[in-house]
Design a protein around this nucleic acid. Structure first.
Lengths: 408, 408
DNA sequence: TGACTTTGTTCTTACGGCGAAGAAATCAAA
DNA sequence: TTTGATTTCTTCGCCGTAAGAACAAAGTCA
């Protein structure tokens, strides 16, 4: 019954793998730390720590970075993580664009490239476009294939844990016959990890944003679609069928408009980008021929335009219904709002918090921080790259072997 | 950032602990299995398996139970778990009663005792009552203190992970100065685990009920209060502040009645026992002087009383709003309904499923089984005992040492 | 009956962590 | 400056655990 079968047996080699993984994580997290300090914290013996650090050094993952301050005796040698030793590729297949980033092991973007593309209906073209952009990034930095750990791909569809390359036939029917994971794997010959965009936004926030403390967190992506991703115990939570976080199709208004999903009054029909810009066209008038965009809305609200503020207020109220339910059901430590519209910051957070306060227990409300993302528009693509980093920090063997097979 | 610090370092002893824990779990799960089969499944060497089994046998946790069927050679010796080797105590502090069960390591109840008591306002009396009942159970079976692994306690309050003995001052203000965990620990001198009642109902279902497959599951306790418990990755999920699963205070009707929690239209004000019986009094008329009870409602519905059925239908509709949100947000594999009213079975499930269908994505809906509990009224107390079992199966050292310290 | 299979044990080997001892580096106080 | 204490890190031998080979025991099947 218990899912705990994940725990595998250990032999001598497994013991080393486990301990060295622990050390690698500690060094990554602390940025710089001495052997002695590691020994104190892990309760591993100094000799063992030294041996493992030597291992990691040989693998090119950590290195000495000078001496630290003395604690009354010999000064410690600080060990640091080699952030630049390997690269990560992050791909975002958005609704209308493809973004690619190349990052180091600290989530810093070394190159990025982006192109508009109608991803929804054109799998072949989108993948081809992605391939070009990836190649572009790799070439720009002259990154050899050997130094890339792997590739993360964010897709605008739920991903079933059992078949991570397959898109949902309801959300992306045109992608029915494509296996994204397989395609990238065969095209680039490296490990590929695929996940839903909101999940990767959440991961991004967990590693580099509001949730860097490691607490449980929910990220809400406010865009054409509305999706949420949960981080639970430091890991993306996907649910039994991969559809956890489909907050956009929570029905918040039983008299609301009909949604493409077949339900009525879904959150997305009320506060999705389309609904917002339509509302803006009504209240703010047409800008040029195409009507106001989300960007116009953001700028309007920031400039104090009452119509824009009214729209944002309404959005906060609707969103609060869903977030209130979220707090009561899941009680995350942090809720992060992402997506272009979230850049209005407090203008959205104020009405949202007010709405939540009417719908969530004061306890869970008081303990939950609700914030907007500070990671910008690359958050999702970086999150995709982070998925690879997370996997590699868990399983050292994912890092490509550099110094191939020399026996000391 | 990552919560992964939970992983501890390993030395030779830890290696043995890990492997023997794995074996213990496998034997518990499989009920009977041969050494050879264990070796095949775990990929441990036969010699290692033999050594570990000998260990476990010495500890009194497993024993040989005869020969199995041959696979074309010598017949295997089947190893079985000693279900009766130790006992578990489960305590449920309900809103209006205290229940105690004494179970074996397979969740079978050996003794139980129950007493009505106004737990809410009387901490001292409740604890004293619990003490008596526990003593009663232990005496009834002549169970020596030594053979009890520990005690689980279910409380009608959220429990903060950081202070598991403290009740929520909002829900149980009278219990402000009591530390339940500490009290039981000092009174009975054994390990004590405290958790919220709905969480323990969920654990009960995960181990002994609908979720025995180990999938993610949400249990909803339908009683005076409405609470939910989540099992995620085989473990109770409590949220950042311990209030995950407070589904009773999801606001499902913005025009609904005011709730004690300060919000309006909480689920509990619409389908809590009080609301149901009140509604029943209106529609079904008074039974005797006290008005119909939940039991009357169940019997009425089963007997085909249209008023009762109408009430249950309405309940399903309201509940469906919350469950719909739950499916979209968390996407559990199973939703289990518990509490007395759930014994109406399909009469509640039908309108509930219909309501959910209008509010959840068809994907998550299709993949989620929604069922009623089959564990009966002892589910929570047994869940409390199960909390101890779960802990001990994870950390063998929690089982009391029987054959104290003889070096072979 | 005899060849083959499967099970489970025994014994040796290898590996990894531990602890003690020691060397090196630094501080602090004489 | 010297001396002793402290901290860091390495070296080396020990020990516990798992692996593997060899073997005995107990079956099956023709």
């Amino acid at each position: 019954m218990r899912a705990g079968m994940a725990v595998l047996t250990v032999d001598a080699a497994g013991m080393r793998a486990q301990n060295s993984g622990l050390l690698l994580n500690m060094i990554w997290r602390e940025r710089q730390i001495s052997r002695a300090e590691i020994a104190r914290r892990t309760e591993l013996s100094p000799s063992t720590v030294s041996a493992i650090v030597a291992d990691l050094e040989l693998a090119g993952l950590v290195r000495s970075i000078g001496a630290g301050v003395s604690r009354g005796g010999r000064r410690p040698t600080l060990i640091g993580f080699c952030d630049e030793a390997f690269s990560l590729v992050g791909v975002e297949l958005g609704a209308s664009h493809v973004t690619v980033v190349l990052t180091d092991l600290r989530g810093r973007v070394r190159t990025q490239s982006k192109a508009s593309h109608a991803v929804r209906g054109d799998p072949e073209g989108s993948l081809q476009k992605a391939k070009e952009l990836i190649q572009e990034c790799l070439d720009a930095e002259r990154v050899p294939r050997r130094s890339v750990v792997g590739m993360g791909v964010a897709v605008p569809s739920p991903v079933h844990p059992a078949s991570p390359g397959k898109m949902s036939p309801l959300i992306l029917p045109a992608w029915k016959n494509v296996d994204v994971k397989e395609w990238f794997e065969t095209t680039f010959d490296m490990p590929v990890f695929v996940d839903n965009d909101a999940n990767l936004g959440a991961l991004s926030e967990c590693f580099w944003g509001a949730g860097s403390g490691g607490e449980d967190l929910t990220y809400i992506k406010l865009a054409t679609g509305i999706g949420a991703g949960h981080i639970i115990h430091g890991d993306v939570y996907r649910g039994a069928g991969g559809t956890a976080g489909e907050i956009g199709h929570i029905a918040v208004d039983s008299n609301g408009p009909l949604c493409v999903c077949g339900l009525r009054g879904c959150l997305v029909t009320l506060i999705g980008s389309t609904a917002l810009t339509e509302r803006a066209r009504e209240l703010m008038g047409a800008r040029g021929r195409k009507g106001p965009t989300v960007r116009d809305l953001v700028e309007g609200a920031r400039a104090g335009d009452p119509a824009a503020k009214q729209i944002i207020d309404g959005m906060g109220a609707w969103l609060g219904i869903a977030v209130g339910g979220l707090l009561n059901l899941l009680n995350p430590a942090i809720v992060v709002l992402g997506g272009e519209i979230s850049s209005v910051g407090e203008l959205l957070l104020d009405p949202l918090r007010a709405s939540v306060r009417q719908r969530a227990l004061s306890v869970s409300m008081a303990e939950t921080r609700i914030v907007t993302s500070a990671l910008g528009e690359r958050a999702i693509a970086v999150g995709a790259a982070t998925l690879v980093l997370q996997a590699a920090l868990r399983d050292r063997s994912l890092f490509p072997q550099q110094n191939v097979g020399r026996t000391a």
